[in-house]
Design a protein around this nucleic acid. Structure first.
Length: 432
RNA sequence: GGAAAGGUGGCCGAGUGGUUUAAGGCGGCGGUCUUGAAAACCGCUGUGGGGCUCUGUCCUCACCGUGAGUUCGAAUCUCACCCUUUCCGCCA
């Protein structure tokens, strides 16, 4: 949510930001008109309320019956007028809120201006430490099916397209990755949280998913429950409605959750393999910071995500998203893409964003610099660390051997319990 | 799912229609006293919106779980919903 004061004071800046994002700046004028209308109504209603308050007090002390009844009648009319104004105010505010809530965050000045992903800027490419394969690499679905660790057919049988079952070491590899990533986050200073995977509407609104992205979410038809599309949603609301003290900032969190997405926008895209499912696992990073420190933590979070890929020896690149590709709540976003030689693609495994005070406004998260100081909105940041299926793809495709087996990355061996995956269930001995 | 009790400021807790501008206490902050501290005493104490002779120890409105309603006037009365606790049932 943008600050209404900012829209009032500098509408041109907001209009330009919307144009840069490739969205219609039209609502800005409508918002300004409604805002003026809103304040005019408030002034009138408040005057009437003040009048009623004082007269009502007098009525309580009046002796003269006739005079009392006359005042009551008068206040009844004032009350009707107030009710009419409140009604009008309600309509104006509803429309105003709807329009304001629909405005995306303002891009940071560092964000390159461009209409779509072709204008994203590659910040750097990191060469992984793995030796280059001297044989034609296979895509992960071939590797996984040949090893018997990914079962696409049974996934479809259970739930339809975009679902799969992981068998034996395949499941263990993913579980090992999750546990290892969480431990890595702990070392990097994040506190772990286990969160609800279903949340109510307000929680999604605060994170910026509702009302705009309703179509991409799963929800319960009878109750106000929505499946989380990312841990960012519950993490944003952990401190919703709270006023934090300056000393407890920054607050850094890491959480593992599954994520549920309809993928309507991507219908027909990436239907093969693990790349894009309706359900996927993710370890997420989240930060609540003072405004002046959010930039620093954006870089930290990016470095922490990169550390994951470095430790796995993988090749990746860092992209700075342009205005046209920027998410709704973000003012700046880095994407991390890992190289997967089997599919021959750079896969987005992480997205690290600073949302400034955009989510903090929606979720009403503030902090006090010192005792007695006026509460200010915090800044919030989120970053994947990392998305599991695509990390799995990268591991399978980068660690595949000519004989079809897959070497388990060294850092994961204590978590997975095996050095080489040759079949779903070989050497099924629990690690110690 | 059934029954009962309850939800008031940072916390505890009073308040069943009008000097309540939410009593009192605890905590916190400031001060007096003291060599210093404690105690005692005095003062202060939330959030949001709006206005202005526009940044002020200023004025005003709203906020007692949420939302509607009754009334000149609602923390207080009515209705619906949410949540908490306890008991019963069910269950990993």
């Amino acid at each position: 949510m943008l600050d209404i004061n900012l829209i009032r004071k500098d509408p041109d800046r907001v209009r330009q930001a919307l144009i840069n994002r490739g969205t219609d700046p039209g609502p800005v004028d409508e918002i300004l008109a409604l805002d003026a209308q809103r304040r005019a109504i408030i002034v009138r209603a408040e005057q009437l309320r003040a009048l009623r308050n004082t007269v009502s007090k007098q009525i309580g002390q009046m002796r003269d019956e006739a005079e009392r009844e006359a005042k009551k009648a008068e206040m009844r009319r004032v009350g009707d007028e107030i009710a009419a104004l409140e009604d009008e105010l309600g309509q104006v505010e509803a429309k105003l809120d709807e329009l304001t809530a629909g405005l995306p965050n303002l891009p940071d000045p560092r964000v390159p201006i461009g209409p779509d992903e072709t204008h994203n800027v590659i910040v750097r490419v990191h060469e992984g430490s793995l030796p280059k394969p001297d044989f034609p690499p296979k895509p992960h679905w071939e590797i996984g099916e040949a090893l018997g660790i990914i079962d696409f057919e049974r996934g479809v049988k259970l739930s339809g397209s975009r679902f799969y079952v992981l068998n034996g070491w395949g499941a263990r590899l993913q579980r090992g990755l999750i546990a290892w990533m969480l431990d890595l986050r702990l070392q990097q200073g994040y506190e772990e949280r286990y969160l609800p995977f279903m949340v109510k509407s307000q929680t999604l609104f605060a994170a910026g998913q509702l009302p705009k992205f309703r179509d991409n979410l799963y929800h319960d038809a009878e109750e106000d429950f929505w499946m989380v599309p990312t841990a960012e949603v519950p993490l944003t609301n952990l401190h919703g409605g709270e006023i934090l003290s300056a000393e407890e900032l920054p607050k850094l969190y890491a959480a593992y959750t599954p994520c549920f997405r309809r993928e309507k926008m991507s219908a027909g895209k990436d239907v093969r393999g693990l790349k894009r499912g309706h359900q996927f696992d993710k370890v997420e990073m989240y930060a609540f910071t003072k405004p002046e420190e959010s930039d620093h933590y954006l870089e930290k979070m990016l470095a922490d995500a990169e550390e994951t890929l470095k430790a796995l020896g993988l090749t990746y690149r860092v992209k700075l998203l342009c205005t046209g590709d920027l998410g709704f709540a973000a003012c700046i976003t880095y994407d991390l893409e890992v190289w997967a030689p089997g599919v021959g693609e750079w896969l987005e495994v992480s997205s690290v964003s600073n949302t400034g005070d955009f989510q903090a406004r929606r979720a009403n998260i503030k902090f006090r610099r010192e005792r007695g100081a006026k509460p200010e909105f915090v800044h919030t940041l989120n970053g994947s660390g990392l998305a599991l299926p695509r990390t799995m793809i990268a591991v399978l495709e980068n660690y595949q051997q000519p004989d079809g087996s897959v070497i388990v990355p060294e850092v994961l061996r204590p978590y997975v319990g095996v050095e080489v995956i040759r079949s779903p269930n070989s050497q099924l001995i629990p690690p110690h």
